[in-house]
Design a protein around this nucleic acid. Sequence first.
RNA 1: GCCUCUUUAGCUCAGUUGGUAGAGCAACGCAUUCGUAAUGCGUAGGUCGGGGGUUCGAGUCCCCCAAAAGGCUCCA
Length: 648
Amino acid sequence: MINITFPDGSVRQYDKGITGLQIAESISQRLAQEIIAVGVNDTVTEVNRPITTDAGIKLYKWEDNEGKHAFWHTSAHLMAEALQELYPNIKFGIGPAIESGFYYDIDTEEYSIKETDFPTIEAKIAEIVDRKENVVREEISKADALTLFSSKNETYKVELINDLEDGTITLYKQGNFVDLCKGPHLTNTADIKAFKLLSLAGAYWRGDEKRKQLTRIYGISFPKKKMLDEYLTFLEEAKKRDHRKIGKEMELFAFSQSVGQGLPLWLPKGTMLRDQLEDFLKKVQKKYGYLQVRTPHIGLKDLWVTSGHYAKYGKDSFQPIHTPQEGEEYLLKPMNCPHHCEIYKTAPRSYKDLPLRYAEFGTVYRYEQSGELHGLTRVRSFTQDDAHIFCRPDQLKDEFMKVMDIIFIIFRALNFENFEAQISLRDPNNREKYIGSDENWEKSEQAIVEACKAKGLPAKVELGEAAFYGPKLDFMVKDAIGRRWQLGTIQVDYNLPERFELEYTGSDNQKHRPVMIHRAPFGSMERFVAVLIEHTGGKFPLWLTPDQVVILPISEKYNDYAKQVTDTLVMQDIRATLDDRNEKIGRKIRDNELKKIPYMIIVGEKETENQEISVRKQGDGDKGTFKVEDFAKMINEEVNQMTKKFLS
RNA sequence: GCCUCUUUAGCUCAGUUGGUAGAGCAACGCAUUCGUAAUGCGUAGGUCGGGGGUUCGAGUCCCCCAAAAGGCUCCA
């Protein structure tokens, strides 16, 4: 007998060699039907793997990530089996489960798979599912594995096996398909009831752009047809929140082929929205002791040589601007820090002056690869809500935590509750990628880790993700379809102060080197607005929205009074516009509802006579009659509450 | 930059096997002057992303380029 411990701590005895499925059956038939995978002492296994020693177990269902993972991983194998039957000579790369679904990388050689082939592949998959094939796990020696996959001419698999240790290699077979795989898997392909191929992409073998590009097929599958339908509906709904679509519809921003790719044009309404965000952050920063500065969009090439950016990115950037002066070269700024360092250097600094916090909404230019550009989230010209804090080493931790506070204020103000924090450190095996001494790197990395600890912020640590001049703490938020985008960022930097020879006089009358913090709570105005659009679907909060109120006269007879109401509201800093089109009121309401304007004011005979207004709230209908002054007060009160909440 | 797909009126889209472009909305004009999600009629609007080719003839087939989309690589 063996002792099986359940997640709640209870222990039951079972015969040695019992499977997770049998354990589930001993609890309830329903549970047995639902479990997909079994966690045995923190290793996820198949439901039919015998358990031979005392163990803690968890039974995973579809609702658990471990369950979905096994389900989708088996789906990847199933798709591979279909591909093998349809295109016998293709070679397989890897085929894992991902956050939503799975993919398989294949080398198609003579075939070229197109999206138009998807129905054929899906039909083949359905055919295989009908065969109800068992998925069988098998342990194999490295030598045998090499022989097996060499004989099948699976060169990618052979490469993978060569990197594995003997004794750890397992195969999973279903039907005529055998794959090198750690598992775990479903025990039968028949459980995969709904299957859809989603897209086709190129993907470099092992993520190395110098190696062959394989064809990657993405798909998703579900245990029930209904779930697939729901997922597809979700994707459709998400498309409606796409910031590129809403940005066009609401006239927030645009791109022009004549201006150039990745160079956004901010339209009047988008500018209005962005200005509100900038003003809010300026107010927050004022409270935290920041000083606004402005710097030019270009700088002499030597400035970037000093900062190290030229050596690191010079070749891949917008190329130098030449002048009539022989040999004179300027670069568009990819960052604001060198300019801010030069501001620091305009005067001798004392330890009493620090910390100095220079803030600038600084527009920078980066020549991103054309294939990387994406709406407003990845562009070639963007404005960072940048600031550089120059402080004494003993002030670093405190300053770092104050920056975290600002980021929390911003995220709370915009209801970004589901952010993820990531600490990006240096790759310990590839130190030559970074500039600066080991000592400085260790100090800055430690400062970030400690600040997160002190703030109780759970952050994922990623090695090798640091910037070349320093480690960073990034805040990631997902877009409508779940893609992660980095928004806020805080970076500790001991290197630029050294390169720019920044110093201050200490209380000991000696020269000392300040530490620098780069930070941007929004990250960039472009990306932040993009994510904000996707989160709100374009229904911005009253304080942000470009149009707060629209006045709708019932007929042209009341245009004069409507104009008067509009002017009164505008005079009180309310963003109000007049819809004086010669249309019926129902039509005006419909159009303005669709424009997501929070308040509609309707004026006709009654209102004109009584010098009143009828108020209608977007999505909420008629709110009754008001005096214009009272309504204006109400709106301003609602807007100010927001500022008060975060600034007092 | 690479792979795959896409590009037709301001917007959303239709356009059969190659025979010389069409709808809805928006715009403009006229009528209507209206009470809480689409008033009616009319007018105008397109070198079919750009260039080259095949053909008697190309929106449609082929090639090159550009832009956009989904990924990969990258992301100071």
